[in-house]
Design a protein around this nucleic acid. Structure first.
Length: 576
RNA sequence: CGGGGCGUGGCGCAGCUUGGUAGCGCGUCUGAUUUGGGAUCAGAAGGCCGCAGGUUCAAAUCCUGUCGCCCCGACCA
């Protein structure tokens, strides 16, 4: 492809709407343009990357036994009413009506469609397991689209749905997908980590996320410094061993009331009363499906709302309104505590182990100290409610936890019977018995993966595409395309590369060399062959890898083969 | 939805407080000179200042409404 004909409008300046790295570079390099909030058009380079990613995903899905289907984007309300999700999904679903006022939505996901399909046409255990997948646009009317492709309202996603006869079958399908996912991210040459995850609203049992590691990631993950354990902080288990360390050795005397005028935060009390945060207890109020509840964690800990929500089994968990809390407890935020409280009280595992506790008094400007769990107050339940922190012991080994950030690009779930029961989807087993399908679902955010790849692979000059997903693998740059000698040499190399199956650009624009180098760097083409006047006299050209800083001089007749070889090696990862 | 900010040539911005016929840089087009890391000179095109009302002799500027976009929060692939 000639650069003079390629539609890749590059920008010198960062559009003001973009403030995350991937969004900035993808816009500047002419890969995407915004159509409306959270909805993007993929320009030729961007779409080539999307096609590269989907092709790798497709190959691995097929390899794992998946069969590709195409499902509708417009879905009837009835299917969603049947599964019960029409009402649950809320404002995040794009809803529409046809001319007859029948209700539809733009599919945010496809469990309902696929379950209905399989139920209608799969009747026997002989037809299972069945793995069906799709790679399509999906729609979620995000509360707030942001970060460019990272959180769009229209996005490209691969979803595979597995149907098995029983839990053991599901386990096998799940393992297949886990392996396929690992292969995919290795083939994409992205630095990633598989982590234990919360299964959220989609439901089900086991769940893993695939995180592309990046400073700018939205998700925080913890991992063990000595074993394979890794988990989303939402999910990470805080083992009792961690709590044990909080016990301390000091004796607890009688509960005393202390005057604490104007001291409202943990830090205030630590600073002015000399009470270390780890001897305080934080009392946090929530309304869980309209019911006021209180949660207790040690003063220096963070409450994990996901854990609390899961423990309560509620649909909606919101920070409680201060007026309501004052009405029920007699004090405002900053002076609240568990003693004498009449709302359901959920304590973190560490709370009962604390030697002595300081906490609010439920009376403004007063606190208690020398409080003890079990003596001065009880809890409705004692649970793992806090977020894991750096240095916590690993739940699986003697190691300790570390933290890093990641971009969630894949998520696999064991759904179990959730949808098959809700939608009455069943098969006949060997004994002629009706059994619900045991399902799994396995998603990959394709467009998000593209953004994540940029987030992880860039420098001050632009994108550095991993070879397997680069829009073009190589670019031939004659320093001066007007010099016949250079142009002819460049064209010859270009033709050779094409003949070797290399996806290659040739920069035939009448531009100064600097402009061409800047653009090549910006759009991130991995291999650049520069044809310059000096080296050409020696019958040599320069080969530069985008991810390295030095050039290498190569004989002009060798360069095409060399480039093809580098590409072949990158492709060799895991194929076969 | 709550809080904050912004809409002025393709992109980035100034002008608005104190109303008076719209400006800068980049990009684009023409020509010349250039040609190894975003060239130089000369010329040119391109904007009902988001939209709709209002105030005024006069509105990018003041007022009201409305639409869109971005950021922070609740949500998530």
């Amino acid at each position: 492809m000639r650069c003079s004909q390629l539609f890749y409008p590059t920008l010198r300046e960062v559009p003001s709407e973009a403030d995350v790295i991937s969004h900035q570079w993808l816009l500047r390099a002419g890969f995407i343009r915004k159509t409306t909030s959270g909805v993007y058009t993929y320009l030729p380079l961007g779409y080539r990357v999307i096609k590269k990613i989907t092709e790798i995903v497709r190959q691995e899905m097929d390899r794992a036994g998946g069969q590709e289907v195409m499902m509708p984007i417009v879905q009837p309300a009835e299917l969603w009413q049947e599964s019960g999700r029409w009402d649950v999904y809320g404002d995040e679903m794009f809803r529409l009506r046809d001319r007859h006022q029948r209700a539809y939505c733009l599919g945010p996901t496809h469990e309902e469609i696929i379950t209905t399909l399989v139920d209608a046409d799969v009747h026997s255990y002989r037809d299972l397991p069945l793995l069906l997948y799709q790679i399509q646009n999906k729609y979620r009317d995000e509360i707030r689209p942001r970060f460019g492709l990272m959180r769009g309202r229209e996005f490209i996603m691969k979803d595979l749905y597995s149907f098995d006869v029983d839990q053991e079958g599901l386990q096998v399908s799940y393992e297949k997908m886990r392996e396929a996912y690992n292969r995919i991210y290795q083939r994409l040459i992205l630095s990633y980590r598989m982590v234990e995850a919360d299964s959220g609203a989609i439901g089900g049992n086991a769940s893993h996320e695939f995180m592309v590691l990046a400073e700018t990631g939205e998700s925080e993950i913890v991992y063990c410094d000595s074993c394979e354990y890794a988990a989303n902080v939402e999910k990470a288990v805080c083992s009792p061993a961690a709590a044990g360390e909080a016990a301390g050795g000091r004796e607890c005397g009688e509960m005393v009331t202390i005057s604490t005028p104007g001291l409202r935060t943990i830090a205030d009390l630590a600073e002015h009363m000399g009470i270390p945060a780890e001897e305080q207890v934080k009392t946090l109020f929530y309304t869980a499906d309209q019911v006021l509840v209180a949660a207790l964690v040690r003063g220096d800990r963070e409450l994990n709302e996901i854990k609390l929500k899961n423990a309560l089994g509620c649909n909606e968990l919101l920070m409680a309104d201060e007026a309501l809390v004052r009405q029920q407890c007699g004090a405002g935020f900053g002076s609240l505590g568990p003693v004498g409280l009449k709302v359901p009280l959920y304590a973190d595992l560490e709370v009962p182990l604390m030697a002595k506790i300081s906490c609010g008094c439920n009376r403004d400007d007063y606190h208690y100290s020398q409080v003890k769990f079990g003596r001065d107050f009880e809890a409705t339940a004692v649970l793992d409610l806090r977020s894991a922190e750096v240095g916590d012991p690993c739940p699986h080994c003697e190691g300790h936890l570390l933290k890093m950030r990641g971009i969630e690009v894949g998520h696999i779930f064991q759904l179990g019977l959730k949808y098959s029961l809700a939608m009455g989807a069943a098969y006949l087993d060997k004994d002629g018995q009706q059994k619900p399908f045991v399902m799994g679902c396995y998603g990959i955010g394709v467009s998000r993966t593209m953004a994540a790849a940029v987030e992880q692979n860039h420098d001050q000059d632009g994108i550095i595409w991993p070879l397997p997903i680069a829009p073009y693998q190589a670019i031939v740059v004659p320093v001066n395309a007007n010099k016949a000698e250079q142009w002819e040499a460049a064209w010859r190399v270009y033709e050779q590369l094409k003949n070797l199956g290399v996806e290659v650009l040739i920069d035939d624009r009448d531009q100064r060399a600097g402009v061409k180098f800047k653009d090549a760097d910006l759009i991130g083409i991995p291999l650049r062959i520069t044809i310059g006047p000096k080296s050409l006299q020696e019958n040599q050209v320069e080969l530069k890898k985008r991810w390295e800083s030095e050039n290498r001089l190569i004989d002009i007749d060798q360069v095409a083969r060399e480039v093809a070889e580098i590409i072949k090696q990158a492709d060799q990862v895991l194929i076969g």
